[in-house]
């Protein structure tokens, strides 16, 4: 829960506040604020949700409700790179499940988990819209297409 009294946290709070300050302090700023924090921190720390609740004058329960509704937001720290395995229709019929299984094996994680060295988060995504190159994965903001299980592993080497 909130530990605003501790100096360390208050410094962090200030940073969170600085991140969202350019947005108008209103209810409609909640999602853009969450996006800003996540972009800078890689996830949404609990204190950041409180900062946003205060700043936008929105109950913390609502801010949390919004953060948990959308698949883009994470409440836990993520790996340095996020791998999204596309599960769209074209990828599904072209073997996306095999790619996912291979990545799970290689990284020794389940979907939604972070590798033990903190390097990668492995997740699913519904469709990346690169269906003609199915199966595809997205690592951070780069889309890699026409994959095989071997090529998917090779792609990871670019992010070592």
């Amino acid at each position: 829960m909130s530990q605003k009294s501790s100096p360390e946290n208050s410094v962090q709070d200030k940073t969170f506040l600085e991140l969202v300050e350019e947005l108008p302090p209103e209810r409609e700023s909640v999602i853009p604020a969450l996006q800003k924090i996540q972009k800078s921190q890689g996830y949404l720390p609990e204190d950041a949700l409180e900062t946003i609740a205060d700043y936008t004058d929105t109950p913390l329960a609502n801010v949390t409700g919004i953060a948990t509704f959308y698949s883009q937001f994470y409440l836990e720290p993520q790996g340095d790179h996020t791998i999204k395995v596309c599960q769209g229709t074209a990828c599904h019929i072209k073997g996306a499940d095999d790619i996912l299984d291979e990545l799970k094996r290689e990284l020794d994680v389940k979907a939604g988990e972070v590798t033990s060295d903190g390097k990668f988060t492995l997740t699913n995504v519904r469709c990346l819209g690169a269906c003609s190159l199915a199966p595809v994965i997205m690592v951070d903001e780069d889309v890699h297409g026409n994959l095989t299980t071997e090529k998917a592993i090779e792609v990871l080497e670019e992010y070592e």
Partner: peptide
Amino acid sequence: DEGDPGAYMDR
């Protein structure tokens, strides 16, 4: 918000 899996016209 082109969300249909298998569609990327709008993108």
